[in-house]
Nucleic acid binder design. Structure first.
Lengths: 118, 118
DNA sequence: GTCAATAATCGTATATTTGCGATATAGAAT
DNA sequence: ATTCTATATCGCAAATATACGATTATTGAC
């Protein structure tokens, strides 16, 4: 799971962490899974598969990615697996993204962005 | 820029929009660029290149992706290009992600997630 | 005009992601 | 034990992403 040429390690920790959460949410299926898990009480794997226009094996892969990113937890319940959002990590992710989107934007009128668009 | 086998279109609009913003932020270089632009008054392209451990052509590609996602704007200023955050769209992105991370999580104790971890 | 500087694009190599069918695994039911 | 169900993993193909050097296009300075 390494980035091409391993450039990832040259970035700051917080930038890497934020990008990893973003990557976990960078596919509509994974966004859909998160939304589904948030509102469902029952969250067996097969319920998730039913919700998505993808094959079971593909959904399983997306679940694995969300699990690796720490956003969800999978728990064995008899022959099935029950998935749910990892509330602890979800809270952390919320804080990280909240921080990113709350960056105070400097007014740049006096320096640039006053010419024609590319 | 199509998803494999074009499955993207089978998802809901809001899920696609959220995933596209997430994808734009799914690389540490692009997170770093956003953070840099937020705090800088001068935001010429070469300033951004200096900040990153990547070649000019690679940075240019990352800028293009952020531009395509609508998160930044590039404006010609003489021989240079000045980049800045698209405040309007940034606000929208903030709302979309805010909405996602503010999903009320149902308590799932009574239905699942009480067994051993996978 | 020529030259230098800036940034985008092209071409290419490599890595990663996405997707599916087939198979494997594990537990439940019989 | 056999069978069924649920899910993960494997193997493969196609699509995308990442990265760089080389080239191109544009502008400004001379």
């Amino acid at each position: 799971m390494q980035m091409a040429y391993n450039k990832k390690l040259k970035f700051k920790k917080d930038e890497i962490v934020a990008s990893e959460i973003a990557k976990a949410l960078s596919h509509p299926a994974r966004v859909a899974i998160i939304k589904f898990l948030a509102r469902q009480k029952s969250c067996f794997c097969n319920n998730i598969v039913e919700q998505l226009p993808l094959a079971q094996s593909t959904v399983s892969q997306h679940l694995k990615e969300l699990k690796n990113a720490g956003l969800i937890i999978g728990l064995i319940d008899g022959p099935r697996v029950c998935y749910c959002i990892d509330k602890e990590n979800w809270k952390k992710a919320k804080l990280i993204f909240g921080g990113l989107f709350s960056l105070k934007l400097n007014s740049q009128k006096d320096k640039c962005c006053y010419a024609k668009t590319t």
